[in-house]
Design a protein around this nucleic acid. Structure first.
Lengths: 140, 140
DNA sequence: CACCAATTTGGACTTTGTCTAATATCCGGA
DNA sequence: TCCGGATATTAGACAAAGTCCAAATTGGTG
């Protein structure tokens, strides 16, 4: 909890270290891209952002890094669009709102939302996550 | 409602007609593939199944047809896996269980499930659908 | 400085899905 | 039956997201 209020690159390095990730240049830039805005980004958006600033970061590194962040629990993967995966820097329990027309993905705070009556899981299974996705569209 | 209890090709033709779809050979085969099993299929699975039986059906036709079925409300699209879209012949309200290891997708009856406390939608937006996806994995 | 491990990189490759222009099929009317 | 137009189907080229790998770079440490 209590991530730094300002997403400086130093704070990003700190965050990475606290998640057991060696804070390299590229990783810091990628983390900064993800954490310093509320919209969720896809891999190619991350790449575009990171490559505006100084050095180039390769596609392979962006994908490697995003997967690393996933593994280390720094971000969550949100699958709403068959053409690309979004990465969500918020790993606390919450849900998602997906605007079909614009492709924008935002959070729904789980605070008020209650889901009850889910059937028991099949034997030998454990829950990996519950994704509640509300798809909306601009009124015609 | 009251789809035929047996998924004969004649019944499929009937089903298609009732959804305002011209029942061609290929469409009947594809509908049959989707409706005659409880697992949800992806486009390439549909293609594999349809092409075991007699005539060949082209990739383009499979995709065209699945989109047509979608538009006509015959099937639903389920997006759980970044690598492929699943098609669900059940359009009544229900949720999904996704087995991460195997890639199998099955239904959760919405009967008992209750979702409450969703925040109001942003102004000018209408809900297009609410997807509740439970991701499970075989216990280690 | 030299070395070793970790990281990054370009580019080839795979997969899912789209697009298009040509062909085939179906059906109603003369 | 034959014709013509609308509807379907097709092969194959193409696009975009993501993976993979071997080579090059980087960053400590002794």
């Amino acid at each position: 909890m209590m991530n730094a209020m300002h997403y400086t690159r130093d704070n990003m390095a700190e965050l990475l270290r606290s998640h057991d990730i060696n804070p390299t240049h590229q990783r810091i830039e990628i983390a900064h891209a993800l954490f310093s805005r509320q919209e969720h980004l896809s891999a190619d958006q991350v790449m575009a952002i990171v490559n505006t600033r100084h050095s180039e970061t390769s596609k392979a590194t962006v994908y490697n890094t995003l997967r690393l962040f996933l593994d280390k629990g720094l971000v969550r993967e949100v699958i709403v669009d068959p053409t690309k995966v979004f990465f969500d820097p918020n790993t606390s329990p919450h849900h998602h709102l997906y605007e079909i027309d614009t492709g924008r993905l935002s959070d729904i705070d789980a605070g008020q939302v209650r889901i009850s009556g889910l059937p028991p899981l099949p034997a030998g299974m454990v829950t990996e996550g519950i994704d509640l996705i509300v798809r909306v569209r601009r009124k015609a």
